[in-house]
Write a protein that binds this DNA or RNA. Structure first.
Lengths: 329, 329
DNA sequence: TTGTATGCGTTATCAT
DNA sequence: ATGATAACGCATACAA
């Protein structure tokens, strides 16, 4: 049990606490001889630097908080990879927190992060209202990944454009009854739907929006309902890959052939979408890069708290695979 | 900037720090009137309880560390769900750390956890040597999920039995050239291979082991090599689902039909394996339950540090889906 | 290069 | 029920 303290190490090494402190942070001002001796006796004694105490004493420290909406969605793992990649070399430490798919834990998770006094928070997939996010940001710099919030640093893909690309792809294939399997409306997540509407309107096609949720099962249920209508769609765009998998489940369940009878497009380009048996046509948002840029934004924010909010928007591209084809007819 | 402190709240509410402290932990010994007034002025001032300072002063606290090997593998998300499920109601806080697929970050991540003075660590998928794990456990109780380490609390599925089940399934289908796509050898992860050997020997069949890695790409490469031999296997058991996906990739790439020409079995029952287009036959290890039990083990350990190591082993079952069939012949 | 003193924001132990 | 005060383990001037 973390009993041995700096004091103990200092005494054992015959030096002062302060010197031990310096040695452990390999700060300048310690002779290499002393440092080595100190580190040696430290490890002999089983000493572990107490980051809690250090953070308190130094008022802050180098810990960043990372909040991920959902561990089951591969895109967040991609973003985390990107974040870690660019942050590891800077000597920052990360403390992770995870929400739930319905966003109900977001606020408390963010509060927990604040309570551990992280210097900044990078949040991926925040489902919070803009107002609540601003409230958090008032106390701790908040960098928003994969969502845009006015007045806050944010890094995201252009969702309007991504959805437009997906819709246009289906239109180009000759589809006209194209449904959009929509996520529940919440601040910051309306752009995919808007992009769909935009493309449909431009083509003079009637939009067909099926409200759904961030859940494979629910998406499957809603797709089933969609396919049971009098004139079912010949193509479906899902608000994300998870929902697209649900749509695939439903199609398989009803014996509807994909893509022969039904085309399906996902959104995210998560790794399961790349499985050969699935080969889901989907919008690639480059999660890893989003993570990297978000981390850089965090660093920049720490560097200058009063800089104007940074907004970075990446251009998505469509990964055409095997779940889309011209309509049967 | 977390500026407002307990002192400020105390002053504003006209009471002492101590009382504010009690109020915020809703400890007994503070009148409901005072408590409400304190909490009110606290939130008015935008006060956020400083967990860092609290942990230091109370020597410890109620934070548990959770270490996950890899965010891209869905089973770890399952385990995390289980952990959080049983821990949330206990008022414990979780701090997460994540390794990399090759295990190279395990040790430093665990050290980081120790430095933030978590009271116990639940580690899922540790790739560390037994010795290193014991070294960690000497300072902080370590609960091992999905792996067994002698002398430590551990919760896992019976890997020997799982691999035996998978192998027997293929034998029953009539296969005789059954290859095992193996993970790199490391402490604690030899049981799947052993179960395979056991079943093959019992059936009088020659084992065919292809060394591979924890990576979809590498598994694909190794499968390709396997399929290029003079007498390629008619069935492959992968050490986990990720590797099985790699095998599927390779088969698709070479135009080998699954399951008609090649049967493939995975291990983990991760959610991508359940996608209708994939429908991977795999061994279900019940990750969520493993997480729950690991969390319970952690609680028990905290309750009695000197209790004998707890070892829980769940029985896996085979989820037979669409990637296995009798050999072509 | 090394040692000393003070403070970080809280909890905990006494009092009152 | 409430208040004063000493730890907690470390960082950080500052002095030597």
């Amino acid at each position: 049990m973390s009993h041995v303290t700096m004091e103990d190490v200092a005494k054992a090494a015959g030096v002062s606490r302060a010197l031990v402190s310096l040695a452990y942070r390999n700060a300048p001002g310690v002779s290499t001889a002393s440092r080595e001796r100190i580190l040696k006796t430290g490890s002999d004694l089983g000493y572990r630097h107490n980051r809690i105490a250090a953070a308190l004493a130094s008022k802050g420290g180098k810990t960043l908080g990372v909040h991920l909406l959902d561990l089951h969605n591969d895109v967040f793992a991609d973003m985390f990879d990107g974040i870690r990649e660019t942050l590891d070399s800077t000597g920052h430490h990360l403390v992770l927190s995870v929400g739930t798919i319905d966003g109900s834990l977001d606020l408390s998770a963010l509060h927990t992060l604040q309570q551990s006094r992280v210097t900044a928070i990078i949040a991926a997939g925040l489902l919070l209202s803009d107002a609540a996010a601003h409230e958090i940001a008032a106390a701790t710099p908040l960098i928003c990944a994969s969502r845009v919030i006015d007045g806050l640093d944010s890094v995201s893909a252009d969702d309007h454009e991504g959805a437009r690309l997906a819709t246009q792809h289906l239109i180009d294939l000759g589809h006209s009854r194209i449904a959009f399997l929509a996520n529940p409306p919440s601040d910051g997540y309306g752009l995919r739907l808007a992009g769909y509407h935009f493309a449909m309107r431009a083509a003079g096609l009637p939009p067909l929006v099926a409200p759904s949720a961030y859940s494979r099962d629910i998406a499957a249920r809603d797709t089933t309902a969609l396919l049971a209508t009098a004139t079912p769609p010949t193509a479906i765009i899902a608000h994300n890959d998870q929902a697209a998998f649900g749509a695939l489940d439903a199609a398989a369940d009803r014996g509807v052939a994909v893509p022969e009878e039904l085309s399906i497009v996902g959104y995210d380009d998560s790794s399961p979408s790349r499985a050969p048996g699935t080969a889901l046509t989907t919008v690639a948002i480059r999660g890893r890069e989003i993570g990297q840029l978000a981390a850089q934004a965090a660093l920049a924010r720490l560097d200058d708290r009063s800089a104007p909010p940074l907004r970075t928007i990446l251009t998505p591209r469509l990964a055409v695979r095997a779940t889309t084809a011209p309509p049967a007819r």
